[in-house]
Amino acid sequence: MTASLSLRERLRALWRIRTRRWLDKRIPRQREIRLSQRSIFILPSAAGWVFGLLLLLLLLTAINYQNSLIFAMTFWLFAMGGVAMYLTFRNLAGLSLATHEAMPCFVGDTASIPLRISADGRYNRYGIQLGYPANPQRQTDAIAGEVADLHILFDCQQRGRLQPGRLLVESRFPAGLFYTWTHLDLDVGSLVYPHPEEVPLVLSAGGDGDSLPGATLDAAGQQDFRGLRPYQAGDSLRQIAWKQLARGKGLVTKEFDRDEGASCWLEWNNVSGDVETRLSRLCGWVLSCHEQGWLYGLRLPGVEIRPAHSEGHLQQCLAVLALFRAPGEEDI
């Protein structure tokens, strides 16, 4: 914190830290939570404050005109406000929310975090809004005794463990006079991989001639020519059958069998740039190596994963890329 920060900003930051700490203690990170008075907050909404003004106006009218019926209506509305407070609280109380691991995704993608909502008691809950801050909200109702599955969207901007922050669950039902909410720290527990950069993977040694710095070839595989197929957007230029094009037969792509047995090392040192750029490029390469069926290994400072090819291997490599020097993951 520098001296240039004004006292107000400092106080605000301090306040934020204090409230976060307090919240962490009060509503700790959980996979599943049943909302109770411990985790539910409630305050009058803006409409509720205006309702208070209305009550005041009505009371003044009743007193000054000595009108019993207006007195009765004022008190009835006031009491209804009180009941509405309880009913609004009750709309969230006893609601159970649970999450399980979301599908991993890449930076820039939108993660859809699975959420299971169930309502206990004999009454339905209406107008529940769920959403992460600065992300789209969605509204749902929860029918008593039933379980509903839905997905909350979260725009992933940060590589590493998916930390969407606190899920805001709010409701104004029934009267809209009160605003009840809770901030849930749901343990989503999935990973956000680096944004895969679409740079064609080039083998630096071996291969079929081209040598741009990229991955170090460990062992060459056999690339058996299988045939030609029409060009599809995204096909590598290297696979285009230029001779066919020259003969005026249009864009055709040469298709090879998988490079069975090709093996390479994807190395930190072979890419340049800052950490995120390097990880992005490596991530793209991991994906394309996996797609092409090669054996590939990953070498990052302090981490080495031997070449292999399997779904599990892919996950492992991506996990390493996701967590490498990610915020809050100092121990790797």
Binding site: F75, A79, G82, V83, A84, P174
Partner: peptide, 17 residues
């Protein structure tokens, strides 16, 4: 819900009245 609100509020209203 409107009926519930009014009925539940009735005793408080009467006391206040």
């Amino acid at each position: 819900y409107a009926s519930a609100l009014m009925v539940l509020a009735l005793p408080v209203m009467l006391v206040l009245y």
